[in-house]
Structure formats: C-alpha cells, structure tokens
C-alpha cells in the first residue's frame, strides 16, 4: 500500500462527503486492505482433513448408488414376475404327473433369478425374456412389460427420494 492508513481514511471520508461512490469504494478498499489478514491457527487443515476422514468421503459405489438401487428394484420385480408365473401354473388343475415338471420349472426359474442377481441389468433382461418364452403366452409378456415400466419409474423415484442432499441448506 502506497499511502498510510490515515491518508486512505482521509481520502475515503472526503469521497463520501462529496458522494463520489467509486472513489469512496476504492479508498475504503485500500484502507481495509491495510488491515492484517485473519491468522488461521496452525493445524487447521489437518483438523479438517481428520474430521473429513471420520465422516467418510463418498466412495465410487456411493456416488453411483442410484444404479444399485435401480438394479435392486429390477431384481425384486423380476423375481416377483417369475414367482407369479409359477403360481399361475399351480392354480390350474393339479395332477400328480405334473409335480416333477413343476419342480423342474421352479428350479429353472429360481436358477435364472439367481443368474440375474449376479449378472446385471442386461443379464436380467435376457433372463426375463427366457422365462417369458418358457411359459409363453401374451399375458406373460404383457406382465413383464408392465414390470419393466414399473422398474424404470421406481428407479427414478428412488433416485429422487433417496439421493443425497444436493442443495446446501441456506437462509
């Protein structure tokens, strides 16, 4: 700063008296710039970093949590669809000879459900189509389409409802 604080004060007060806003602001800025900066204590940075570690920064799977939530809903709905299809067969005329067939179809359905849990979204879609082909019928396909739409809507809703706070709380 080229001037003493008193000179800047004079300059500022004179500018204010003459209603010269730009000059007043410049002088006041120079005057306040002459004040020493706030001295932050030693270790402040380490304290903040230590607190941040205790709280935990979001890891990669947390940053993409919406993907896992959508997958969970898909798996639940697909599993329900497979189970409903299986129960539909049981609701028909029961014959003892159908027990083995029912058991094997149930095992296939469960196996495909487990495969879907392990593979991912694309694998789940293929498993769902495979299940639909096994049971055939337009009603099953329609039901699966409805399940897929429900999954999409639910995933989006979960993302909005469960997603971490995006906006900072403000006055």
């Amino acid at each position: 700063m080229s001037r003493e604080p008193r000179q800047e004060l004079e300059r500022w007060l004179e500018a204010e008296r003459h209603l010269e806003t730009p000059e007043a602001e410049a002088a006041l800025g120079a005057l306040l710039a002459a004040l020493p900066p706030v001295q932050v204590s030693e270790g402040f940075v380490d304290r903040v970093l230590g607190a941040a570690d205790r709280i935990g920064r979001p890891v990669w799977w947390q940053r993409h949590a919406w993907l896992w939530r959508a997958a969970l809903v898909s798996w639940l709905v697909t599993g329900f669809a497979a189970l409903a299809s299986t129960l539909g067969l049981v609701g028909g005329v029961w014959q003892s000879g159908q027990a083995v067939g029912l058991a094997s179809r149930a095992a296939v359905g469960i196996g495909r459900l487990l495969a879907g849990l392990l593979v991912g979204a694309d694998g789940l879609a293929r498993a769902s189509r495979a299940v639909a082909q096994l049971f055939s019928g337009p009603s099953i396909l329609l039901f699966l389409v409805i399940c897929a739409l429900t999954t999409t809507i639910a995933a989006r809703a979960l993302t909005v409802v469960i997603a971490p706070e995006r906006s900072i709380r403000h006055v």
Partner: peptide, 22 residues
C-alpha cells in the same frame, strides 16, 4: 469470534467436501 470462526469454517469445508460429488 476467531476460535468459533475456525469451528464454523471447518463445518463449512466439511459440507463442501460432502457435496463435492454434485
């Protein structure tokens, strides 16, 4: 208050880091 200001500043930085992903 300087000591309080550091505490509040720490809180602000932590808020910022939590929201950094967005």
């Amino acid at each position: 208050d300087l000591s309080w200001a550091e505490d509040v500043s720490q809180e602000a930085f932590l808020k910022a880091f939590r929201a950094l992903a967005s």
